[in-house]
Design a protein around this nucleic acid. Structure first.
Lengths: 166, 166
DNA sequence: CCGTTGACTGCATAAGTATGCAGTCGACCC
DNA sequence: GGGTCGACTGCATACTTATGCAGTCAACGG
């Protein structure tokens, strides 16, 4: 009886709605859940504040004070952080890496002279589960993977970075 | 008439209270403002939820959901980030920097061989207002300051880092 | 000394968010 | 078909946070 528009179309309604919420929040203009409800209605999602509250919790969104403007919902630090770190890594690999080669658990990355610490820093910052640690010389970074499968995943991930992730 | 313990002692009461709040929040066990009020009472700060609300806004604290545990207040990303960056910079300067010299707007930092990119990265990460940009060679980082006063501040800040900031 | 000002706070309450409960719906099983 | 289960949602309301207003106090100037 609450049914007015969602019922038959609602197969993946929740996922779509949450994607819409993320988009709206990225826009940086959402200050309250009621505002979000209003925006969602404009986009033909029939929801109430209660549902939005649950979505926001599931998405891990947080509310921060942005100076004069009052409260705004934003993406969680973890996500922003990850995006930044990924950018940095992509850049570093793009600009300074000559080659990547894996020998068992060890990855050997050749860089331009003097750039190894930079690349290693970018790797560290990306906090790959697969990586136990890195050591940077002058133009070589040694990456120690946690296991063979990890090493393989890592190799795939690193060598496909420049194209795939942008 | 609200006066019970704070009045005469309250000269810098606000600052102390806010420091206490930061400490408590760092502990990671504060879920609501009322909890914070209770903890503060234990530490002999006589405050109400209203004041704590204002403090929290001033301190830029945010509330996040931490899985099962429900909501928790945490330090803002900016602060955590700044702490991390400062650590990194201190480390980098400590470990790899030979000398720092300023010539007008230009800072010339000599590092151990190959470490210049690392140091430059740490500087970039610290987002000093004074710095327009950095260029890293192999064992030298060039820092371009935004103005003469900026250059002076920067010099003071960098040369006093190892001792002062820890 | 007295009035003015600005910082700080509590009280009461408005504003905003979370949640117990019940209803709907599709999937699955008997 | 009817029963059960789990995911999802709205409603009403509890819970939590923000804020308008007024009071207190220290600092300052006349």
């Amino acid at each position: 009886m609450s049914a007015s528009s969602a019922p038959t179309l609602s197969i993946t309604s929740k996922a779509k709605r949450q994607r819409a919420i993320l988009d709206l929040v990225r826009g940086g203009v959402i200050g309250t859940q009621e505002e979000l409800v209003a925006e969602l209605h404009q986009r033909h999602f029939a929801v109430t504040q209660a549902t939005v509250s649950r979505d926001i919790r599931e998405l891990g969104l947080i509310r921060v004070y942005h100076g004069e403007a009052g409260a705004r919902y934003v993406l969680p630090m973890a996500e922003l952080d990850a995006e930044l770190a990924a950018d940095r890594l992509r850049n570093a690999v793009d600009e300074h890496v000559q080659s990547i080669e894996f020998v068992d658990l060890l990855g050997v990355i050749h860089t331009n002279p003097g750039c190894a610490p930079l690349v290693a820093g970018a790797l560290d910052g990306s906090r790959f589960d697969e990586i136990a640690g890195t050591i940077a010389g002058d133009d070589t970074v040694l990456v120690i993977a946690r296991s063979r499968p990890a090493a393989q995943r890592l190799q795939r991930r690193l060598t496909s970075l420049p194209d795939a992730s942008l």
